[in-house]
Write a protein that binds this DNA or RNA. Structure first.
Length: 579
DNA sequence: GCCGTTTTCGGCCCGACTGTTTTCAGTCG
């Protein structure tokens, strides 16, 4: 069984136990296990075979035994028993905003409702308002929630969420009395998709100017053009839904509490729970408003550094805050010195008008240099990728002459390297003969077609490309498009081992629709000794702007500059591939 | 159900907002 399948079983079990009114902490144990399995980065089956299940955080004897049963039989007795007790439609109701386990159980037990459709009908008939704790307003909210559920499009990609958040923050930043405005939540942790947006605004601390400014911020927020519906609005918190159906939560606090607030609203929830536990161990209670001692006195933190320092920890970068070992590493003083955008010295994939790019070699080279890069590898498509007007062998040689001309014009401030994004064909062979590839500085190989091949076939094809002595880098290894298309069904463990053996570099494609390798794969690849390239895949001069998202994805995978070949000097980079 | 240089039992983060309530439960993050 795959990680996602096991995680889904535990997640649904958590929902069912919640509906049955089970102990809250037992439910949380199932949720934590599901989360950790889903983001493990290596096959759970492998950990199972190695007898290492209990080394996974949140997996103890009981859950390890359940995983064992799932792996051996594909079934889980206690899960099937729960399924016979709690109808699937009742679990589905938890997807509705403002319907949690208590209300789902209420609707089911009191009115015999076992589906979202039946719930909608009951709400329309006015039968929910008579239930204990319910009323006409609550009934309306259930209906509105069902409507929102029907419109919902799932998680929003980073490339969409990021500009939206910054547009809203810019407007809020103009309100008089605002001191700071920043994104928090999964956007600040730079997850590849976000479920909602969390925005944080600090106003001046003075009375009554601060509270007045806070009211102005809330009013301005409710009236932003992106807002379709105000879900709730109080003095510190307002939630809205955009026309696209994305929920945006805004919190406003005094700037003296900025550190605890930013820390808290950045999350993740699992990270925060651990942090609050650490605080309690030291006789402190941590909230978004500050640290409280047992005698009730407060410690205010204006910066996140102060929050972590108060708990005896160094600042943990937002990208690591997922409770995947970062707190232990911080306690032991072993936090990695994560790669930073400033470390990048070059780019190892971009396109020009020679194939499907929109600008010339010279324009692209100048744009890359303007972003502080020292070198870039030209990687137009090879000819079999007809949709991208791929290059034929003779085009490649003419392009080489132009590359050399651009290099002469740019002098010693910048260097273009001659490369190609060569197609890996259906049988694992490459689109160009070896002697052509041998003429290039570096060769990037990519699979664009036949991604649906079965696991064995597509993995064999990828391994053939990795083992080809002319191939230096594998572009966007899985080929996934976030929210649109699953990647190829590759055996990533085999891919990583092969890449480590041959020294073949795997790309972290920085485009927000790809981010491929993804964060969990980055971490596993590094563990196995694989080197990475963070590449823009730019098709125009603005395309280099995505590089920070690639860097952030690498950081989420605990990458340091030494793991990333384009954080090295050009000499070191080229030297790596001659070995 | 997990977890432990204060514990193998007894803890397990903390607060805002809403609606239905005369003091709080449910949901959410």
């Amino acid at each position: 069984m795959k990680n996602q399948e096991v995680a889904a079983v535990f997640s649904v079990m958590a929902d069912m136990l919640a509906i049955q009114g089970e102990n809250y902490h037992r439910i949380m144990a199932y949720r934590r296990a599901a989360e950790n399995i889903a983001t493990l980065g290596r096959p759970l089956e492998q950990a199972w075979q190695a007898g290492e299940l209990e080394s996974i955080p949140g997996i103890g004897k009981t859950l390890a035994a359940k995983i064992d049963e799932l792996m051996r039989t594909g079934r889980l007795g206690v899960y099937e028993k729960l399924q016979s007790q709690v109808p699937a439609g009742v679990v589905d109701m938890l997807e509705i905003p403002d319907v949690g386990p208590k209300r789902a159980a209420l609707f089911w037990n009191e009115l015999g409702i076992t589906s979202v459709g039946a719930l909608e009908q009951a709400a329309r008939e006015g039968s929910l308002r008579a239930l204990p704790g319910m009323g006409a307003r609550s009934e309306e909210k259930v209906l509105a929630g069902i409507e929102a559920l029907k419109r919902r499009t799932g998680r929003t990609r980073l490339g969409v969420a990021w500009p939206l958040a910054h547009a809203m923050l810019e407007a809020l930043g103009e309100v008089p009395g605002v001191v700071r405005a920043a994104p928090a939540g999964s956007l600040r942790r730079v997850r590849e998709t976000v479920g909602d947006l969390d925005l944080l605004v600090a106003v001046e601390d003075a009375e009554p100017a601060g509270p007045e400014a806070a009211r102005r911020v809330m009013a301005r927020f409710r009236e932003l053009p992106q807002v379709a519906e105000v879900l709730l609005s109080g003095t510190t918190k307002t939630s809205i839904r955009t026309h696209e159906g994305l929920q945006v939560d805004l919190r406003v606090l005094g700037s003296a509490r900025w550190g605890t607030a930013l820390q808290y609203f950045t999350g993740s929830q699992a990270h925060n729970i651990r942090l609050r536990g650490l605080a309690l161990d030291q006789g402190l209670s941590l909230s978004e408003y500050g640290l409280k001692r047992e005698d009730g006195t407060e410690i205010l933190c204006a910066s996140e550094e102060e929050v972590y320092a108060a708990l005896g920890l160094p600042l943990i970068p937002p990208e690591l805050r997922e409770d995947r070992g970062e707190i232990e590493a911080a306690l032991e003083g072993h936090l990695p010195e994560l790669i930073e955008m400033e470390d990048l010295k070059g780019d190892l994939q971009f396109h020009t008008t020679w194939s499907d790019g929109h600008q010339s070699l010279l324009d692209m080279a100048q744009a890359a240099r303007a972003r502080g890069l020292k070198y870039a590898l030209v990687t137009d498509h090879s000819h079999s990728l007809g949709v991208a007007q791929g290059l034929a062998v003779e085009d490649l040689r003419r392009q080489r002459a132009e590359i050399e001309e651009v290099n002469r014009r740019m002098g010693n401030t910048f260097r273009l390297l001659a490369g190609i994004e060569v197609e890996v064909l259906a049988d694992g062979s490459l689109d160009f003969p070896d002697h052509v590839l041998a003429e290039l500085d570096l060769v990037v190989a990519a699979v664009h077609t036949g991604l649906r091949q079965d696991r064995e076939q597509v993995t064999a094809r990828m391994l053939a490309a990795i083992r080809n002595p002319h191939v230096d880098i594998i572009a966007h290894p899985t080929g996934r498009l976030i929210g649109e298309r699953e990647g190829a069904d590759l055996d990533m463990e085999l891919v990583f081992h092969a890449a480590a053996d041959t020294g073949t570099v795997l790309e972290v494609n920085a485009h927000p629709s790809r981010l491929d390798l993804r964060d969990a794969h980055v971490r596993r690849a590094i563990e196995l000794g694989v080197k990475l390239a963070i590449s823009s895949d730019a098709h125009d001069v603005d395309g280099f702007a995505v590089l920070p998202m690639g860097v952030a994805t690498a950081r989420r995978g605990w990458a340091i500059a030494g793991d990333v070949v384009n954080a090295w000097s050009m000499e070191d980079l080229l030297g790596w591939f001659v070995q």
